[in-house]
């Protein structure tokens, strides 16, 4: 069955859910049909996707955790923790 056509506003409202893979099948299909045909909406989705990639890339800048790890292990030992690598 062909999905119902949606307008640009409806498509834009689904932007984040689409990029987060949170859209249910029906609305997803409607949106994909719209995006294939709409040159106006595509740049908004591409821009938001790039933004999300960059934000998610921030995870690689993890802080060092060695210091807090030994502090936590020390506190746990005081509670009786006795795992092999402690």
């Amino acid at each position: 069955m062909t999905p119902s056509p949606i307008d640009c506003r409806t498509a834009a409202e689904r932007l984040w859910e689409y990029l987060d893979h949170e859209l249910p099948d029906g609305p997803l299909e409607e949106l994909e049909v719209h995006l294939r045909a709409c040159a106006e909406c595509t740049p908004h989705f591409a821009f938001a996707a790039r933004l999300l990639r960059d934000i998610r890339g921030a995870r690689s800048n993890d802080r060092q955790t060695e210091g807090i790890q030994s502090r936590v292990l020390g506190a746990l030992r005081a509670e009786g923790f006795m795992a092999a690598h402690s």
Partner: peptide
């Protein structure tokens, strides 16, 4: 806690320390 439970705690829970540290920092 028993040694077995401590090992499980270490393997399953303590392994999440970097994630918790990041969340706490946020």
């Amino acid at each position: 806690m028993s040694d077995l439970r401590d090992r499980r705690f270490e393997r399953d829970v303590l392994a999440c320390l970097p994630d918790v540290a990041r969340f706490a920092r946020s």
